[in-house]
Amino acid sequence: MRLACAEINLSALNQNLARVRQLAPKSRVMAVLKANAYGHGLVTIAQSLVDADAFAVARIDEALALRAGGVVKPIVLLEGVFRSEDLAIAATSNFHIVVHDEAQLYMLEHAELVSPISVWLKLDTGMHRLGIEPSLCDDFYRRLESCKNVAANIKLMTHFACADDTQNSKTTEQMAHFFQNIKTVHNELCLANSAGIVGWPKSHCHWVRPGLMLYGVSPMLAATGKDHALNAVMRLTSSIIAIRNVKAGETVGYGSAWRASNNTRIGVVAMGYGDGYPRHAPNGTPVIINGKRFSIVGRVSMDMITVELGDDHSVMLGDEVELWGPNLPVEEIAQFATTIPYELLCNITPRVEYKYIQE
Rank of each mutant, 00 (worst) to 15 (best):
A6N: 13
E7L: 13
S11A: 03
A18N: 07
A18R: 12
Q22N: 06
Q22P: 01
L23P: 06
A31V: 03
N36W: 12
G39Q: 08
L42G: 09
V50D: 05
V57F: 11
A58W: 05
I60P: 03
A63G: 15
L64I: 15
P74L: 04
I75S: 03
A90I: 00
A91L: 10
T92E: 10
S93C: 09
S93D: 03
N94F: 06
F95N: 04
I97T: 13
L108R: 07
S115Y: 01
V119R: 00
L121W: 03
K122V: 00
M127G: 00
M127N: 00
I132Q: 01
L136N: 14
C137A: 14
E145G: 04
A151M: 13
A151N: 09
N153Q: 05
K155G: 02
H159P: 08
F160N: 01
C162G: 00
Q167V: 09
K170H: 14
K170G: 00
K170E: 10
T171R: 00
F179T: 10
Q180A: 10
N181K: 12
T184K: 15
H186N: 11
E188W: 09
L189C: 11
L191T: 07
A192W: 07
G199W: 06
S203E: 07
V208I: 15
R209W: 03
P210A: 02
A223N: 08
T224C: 13
H228K: 06
N231Q: 10
A232S: 15
A242C: 06
R244T: 09
K247V: 06
A248R: 15
G253Y: 02
Y254G: 06
W258G: 05
R259H: 03
R259E: 13
R259F: 01
S261W: 04
H280T: 11
R293C: 09
R293D: 02
R293F: 07
I296C: 01
V297N: 07
G298E: 11
S301T: 14
T306R: 03
E308V: 14
S314C: 07
L317N: 03
E320D: 08
E320H: 06
V321K: 01
E322L: 12
L323H: 04
G325L: 13
P329M: 05
A337E: 09
P341R: 09
Y342V: 12
E343S: 03
N347Q: 15
T349I: 03
T349W: 04
T349A: 08
R351Q: 05
K355A: 12
E359V: 11
